[in-house]
């Protein structure tokens, strides 16, 4: 038998194959954009609607058709909302128009049909940010730890003490 030198395989078309695969994946896939604001809707119960009107534990937040923000029927700027929510939740009964305790504080968010979705989301975002700050402060003062470093049971304890109760409705 004749001994032959091993032939070299021409790999110049390898990059073409790789390019084809790359283009295929570029076309059929999308970047993962599954992020958003988590919310919990109240159960459907027509009889129980509108029973929470004049309650000190309920902070009434309205967004009207001109995209204006009203808290307890007073026009405010978006930046003011966070501190008002924090006052409301952390009131502990000291002011008569705010909540008795954090676990009973409710925020009633109402909007018109003509309210823009973008503005609604930005207000919802503010409310969530206010609650996150409240939780962070509570974690610091109770457990001397930042919120991210808390264990599961401590976190559960906190969220029981400061439940995020936002009711969404139309007016």
């Amino acid at each position: 038998m004749k001994k032959r030198k091993a032939t070299e395989i021409n790999a110049s078309s390898m990059s073409d194959i790789a390019f084809l695969l790359l283009v295929f994946f570029l076309l059929v896939t999308t970047f993962n954009t599954d992020e958003g604001i988590q919310a919990q809707l109240p159960p459907w119960d027509p009889a129980a609607e509108e029973t929470i009107e004049n309650d000190r534990n309920v902070l009434k937040v309205l967004i009207n058709q001109r995209n204006e923000l009203l808290v307890e029927n007073e026009l405010i700027r978006t930046e003011e909302l966070k501190s008002i929510v924090q006052q409301h939740v952390n009131n502990w009964g000291s002011k008569s128009n705010y909540s008795v305790s954090p676990d009973r504080a409710v925020i009633s968010l109402k909007n018109k049909r003509e309210t823009s979705y973008q503005f609604y989301i930005s207000i919802y975002d503010e409310l969530m940010a206010a609650y996150r700050e409240i939780l962070e402060n509570a974690a610091m003062s109770k457990f001397q730890l930042p919120l991210q470093a808390l264990g599961e049971d401590h976190r559960l304890q906190l969220s029981k003490q400061y439940p995020i109760l936002i009711s969404e409705a139309e007016f």
Binding site: L41, K112, R113, S116, Y117, Q118, I121, Y124
Partner: peptide, 28 residues
């Protein structure tokens, strides 16, 4: 983002009727 809340409220109403209460408002 340029949609008005009317259609969103209708959707939320329907979701409540079938007890699909966990929702997520997609945002970036």
């Amino acid at each position: 983002k340029d949609v008005t809340m009317g259609i969103v409220s209708d959707i939320k109403q329907e979701l409540r009727k079938v007890q699909a209460l966990k929702i997520n408002y997609s945002a970036v």
